Simulated assay, not measured.
Amino acid sequence: MAKINLLPWREELREQRNQEFYVAIGIVVFIAAALTYLVSSYYDGALQAQTYRNNFVTRETQVLDEKIAEIRELQDTRKELIDRMEVIQKLQGNRPVIVRVFDDVARSMPDDLFLTTLNIVGDQVTIEGLAKSNNRVAALMRNFDSSEWFDEPELKRVKATDTGVNEFEVAMKRIEPKADADKEAP
């Protein structure tokens, strides 16, 4: 005899396949969600680690910038101190020269001639004064011309005043006298 299955086996098979399909979809969704969570967690961790490194580098850069600024300030201070030392050395080196210049000016002054202004800028010396006659100014010019501390004296002006004296102005160069060894060399 022939067997006839009147049970709805196709529907049961279909339902079983649907259930297997839904289980497979659920497993795939679960695996996709887990993978998404893991990848997201990995990249979040990597991002946090990189942010920490960036913050560390930024802090260290700021510390180094402060040290660089301090070094620049120290270099500027050092340069200023060196400049001051050079100025002091020049002043100390020129101290005897200025004394000799004033001494030579005093020795070059003829009688009846008075200085009102003595101005020294660099190696340029300017003298203003009063003289009773033009001959006294000429004598002053000769004395400066024969001096070993002054060179190229030039009479800038002579002006007679109502009081009977002459106002004058003389400009010249201040020079360092040559050593005796230079004078003896042929």
Rank of each mutant, 00 (worst) to 15 (best):
residue 87 V to Y: 02
residue 141 M to R: 08
residue 44 D to C: 04
residue 100 R to M: 08
residue 103 D to W: 13
residue 31 I to Y: 02
residue 15 E to C: 08
residue 11 E to N: 11
residue 51 T to C: 03
residue 147 S to G: 05
residue 13 L to C: 07
residue 146 S to L: 07
residue 21 F to W: 13
residue 47 L to R: 13
residue 66 E to Y: 00
residue 104 D to Y: 01
residue 87 V to N: 05
residue 72 R to T: 12
residue 117 T to W: 12
residue 83 D to G: 03
residue 113 L to D: 03
residue 29 V to N: 07
residue 118 L to Y: 02
residue 146 S to G: 01
residue 109 M to L: 15
residue 37 Y to M: 11
residue 149 W to F: 10
residue 58 T to H: 04
residue 23 V to T: 09
residue 88 I to L: 11
residue 125 V to A: 12
residue 14 R to L: 15
residue 56 F to E: 15
residue 66 E to N: 14
residue 120 I to E: 02
residue 139 A to M: 10
residue 46 A to R: 12
residue 93 G to V: 02
residue 109 M to W: 08
residue 70 E to Q: 09
residue 84 R to C: 00
residue 86 E to R: 00
residue 20 E to S: 03
residue 31 I to P: 01
residue 14 R to E: 15
residue 97 V to Y: 02
residue 96 P to M: 06
residue 47 L to H: 10
residue 88 I to S: 06
residue 92 Q to N: 15
residue 74 L to E: 11
residue 146 S to K: 14
residue 101 V to E: 01
residue 27 I to P: 00
residue 46 A to F: 01
residue 81 L to A: 02
residue 48 Q to N: 07
residue 86 E to Q: 07
residue 109 M to S: 05
residue 20 E to H: 00
residue 118 L to S: 03
residue 95 R to Q: 13
residue 40 S to Q: 10
residue 86 E to K: 02
residue 81 L to M: 09
residue 88 I to A: 14
residue 110 P to H: 09
residue 73 E to Q: 06
residue 50 Q to C: 01
residue 20 E to L: 03
residue 13 L to H: 08
residue 30 F to V: 15
residue 29 V to F: 14
residue 74 L to M: 10
residue 137 V to H: 02
residue 54 N to L: 13
residue 13 L to Y: 11
residue 136 R to S: 06
residue 55 N to D: 14
residue 128 E to P: 01
residue 36 T to K: 04
residue 51 T to D: 11
residue 67 K to I: 02
residue 117 T to H: 13
residue 71 I to T: 07
residue 121 V to Y: 09
residue 126 T to D: 00
residue 59 R to S: 13
residue 38 L to H: 03
residue 139 A to P: 01
residue 22 Y to A: 12
residue 47 L to Y: 10
residue 54 N to V: 02
residue 60 E to A: 04
residue 64 L to E: 09
residue 129 G to P: 00
residue 146 S to M: 08
residue 49 A to Y: 03
residue 73 E to Y: 09
residue 82 I to W: 10
residue 132 K to P: 01
residue 87 V to M: 05
residue 29 V to S: 10
residue 127 I to G: 01
residue 132 K to Q: 06
residue 32 A to C: 09
residue 111 D to N: 14
residue 149 W to Y: 10
residue 102 F to Q: 07
residue 116 T to E: 06
residue 22 Y to V: 04
residue 131 A to Q: 01
residue 143 N to D: 07
residue 116 T to H: 09
